[in-house]
Amino acid sequence: MYYLGVDVGSVSTDIVLIDENFKIIDKVYLKTKGRPIKAIQDGFRELKKYKKEEILAAGTTGSGRQIAGYVIGADVVKNEITAHAVAALYIDKDVKTIIEIGGQDSKIITLKDGVVTDFAMNTVCAAGTGSFLDRQAERLEIPIDKFGEYALRSDSPVRIAGRCAVFAESDMIHKQQLGYCEEDIISGLCEALVRNYLNNLAKGKEIKQKVFFQGGVAANAGMKKAFENALGFEVYVPEYYSYMGAVGSAILAKEYYEKGNKTKFLGFNIADLSFNTKTIDCSGCSNRCEVVEMLRENKPIGFFGDRCGKWSEKVKAS
């Protein structure tokens, strides 16, 4: 029997199944590409070998957690800060700081005695996130999964202005035109992103050991090394660094089940159903809420965006 965790992020959608002993039984990684429902359905198609009855509970997280919750019939819908912290603490209860860099946001989470005591997220700036690295890899025509190797081969990283993604890119172009090699530029970029992260997100925070580095960007060994150089101590990248949100979500689902609750999980066959959404302007009161109606096979399965619960409670009741 398993617990399902789904992390719908801006860039990737990750799905994991864990067993009673928290062991990862199966995992799927897909690009979200702005279509979260399709990404979930594609992922579920790969998991059809599992029966609905084998899933004791399901959880969702990530920026698309709410929509994912409706699509799969999630029991727990939690923000990604909590999900990442839960997963990291399960792996190592001594973790004190989590550096999480995903597709479009980055976070720092501080923990004390197994409880989140502080956190910060980047705001509207993409400098230092996975998307920015992706774009630079594409521009340099180097596969993103080779970025780390390139960085590690560098002996003398070039200083790149990393405070802003736009300026960082033009600075990189400038350094290329000055004749610096790709390895030194990529390594310099990693250092710039780490500098930016520590100066902005981690500003005023004491980064206590043990530090976990997770999220998709943790795949880049150059970033890990740059963090270690800047901090002066080892930074740990957990085995399933890019699935940590989904793992945390599955653990939260397990906790839900262990409290004696029954699952609402709809099964992997939802992969073959049609889903769409439409917007309703509620005229029930002066709030004039823009309510999003979610339809499965043209039947409403959920509403969100209403303040009074008039719509969202409708489905719960039926």
Partner: peptide, 30 residues
């Protein structure tokens, strides 16, 4: 972060995630 009057300057997803994580933190005693 956001804008007090300009709707275009406030990101709902960012606010929701931060707020929910913060409420969980204070409810758990952090």
């Amino acid at each position: 972060d956001g804008d007090g009057v300009d709707r275009r300057g406030t990101q709902d997803g960012q606010i929701r995630t931060r707020l929910e994580a913060f409420f969980e933190m204070i409810n758990n005693g952090g």
